[in-house]
Amino acid sequence: MKLYYKPGACSLATHIVLNELGLSFDIESVDTSAKTTAGGRDFLEINPDGYVPALALDNGDVLTEGAAILQYLADQHPASGLAPTPGSWERTQLHRHLNFISAELHKSFSPLFQGAEGVAREAAIDKVRKRIAHFEPIFADGRPYLMGDTFSVADAYLFTVLNWAGFIGLSLDEFPQATAFVARIAERQATRRALEAEGLRKAA
C-alpha cells in the first residue's frame, strides 16, 4: 500500500491507523497546491479531487475520503478493535463521532487555512472553539477515548484535527479535556512514528 499525504493534514489520521495496525506501507508527500507528488506525478491522476488522503491498495484500487479509509482499514482487521462491529449500536456511535469531526470540526478550520482575516478570522476562530467544546463533556467522565476505554479510528482523526489548533495560533488551554486527550494520543507509539515520518516531531 501507499499513503499519499500532506504533513499534518487529515491524512495524518490514516498514517496513525496504518501504524496502529502494524501494516507494511509506503508514504509519498503531496503538494496539494501544485497537485504533484514528491515523485513528480500528477496527483490528479491518483485522486481527481486533488486532496489527501489517498490510499493506493496493493490491488491497484485507490481509496479516498479520510473517514471512509479509516473504517475500511479497521474493518479489514476486526481483531484490532479500532472500530466496533458493523451494525452495532457502538458502530453507530463511531459514525456519529466521525461525522461530527468531519462535517463540523474539520470544516470549521477551512477559513483559517484559507487566510481569513479580521472579522472573518474572529468568526472562524469562535466557530472552531465551539466545535472543540463539543468534546469536553464526552471526556469529562474520565474516559480516555471517544468510545470509552478502547482507542478507535475516531481518536486518530480527532487528534489530527485538534492538533491544527497550534497551526492557527489557538490555545487549547480553555479545553482541559481536549488538551489531555491530545497529549495522551501524542504519546502512543503509532502516533509518534507517524509524526516523526512526516517531519512533525524529532525522532527520539
Rank of each mutant, 00 (worst) to 15 (best):
A34E: 08
D49L: 07
L200I: 09
F159R: 02
A204C: 06
E174T: 13
Q93P: 05
A140E: 13
D31T: 15
A83E: 01
D49P: 02
L12C: 07
A154K: 03
I132D: 02
L94P: 00
N19M: 12
A203G: 09
Y4F: 15
Y51I: 05
S80N: 04
G66Y: 02
A54G: 08
H106Y: 11
R131G: 07
A165F: 15
A13C: 08
F159P: 00
E187L: 13
G66I: 01
A154F: 00
A54P: 01
A120H: 11
A186G: 13
L112D: 07
E117H: 05
F109W: 05
F159E: 00
A124L: 06
L82R: 00
A54K: 01
F175W: 12
E104P: 10
L170Q: 10
T150N: 09
S110V: 08
D42T: 10
L112A: 05
M147H: 01
G166R: 05
L82H: 01
D42K: 08
V62A: 00
A9Y: 07
R192V: 14
E187M: 13
T32D: 06
F109R: 15
E90V: 11
G166H: 10
L70G: 02
H134E: 03
A165H: 08
V182F: 00
A186K: 08
E45Y: 06
W164F: 04
L98W: 05
L98F: 01
A83W: 02
I168D: 06
G118R: 13
G87F: 04
E45T: 14
A116C: 07
V62Y: 03
A38E: 06
A9T: 02
P144L: 07
T92F: 15
K2R: 12
D126C: 09
E196F: 15
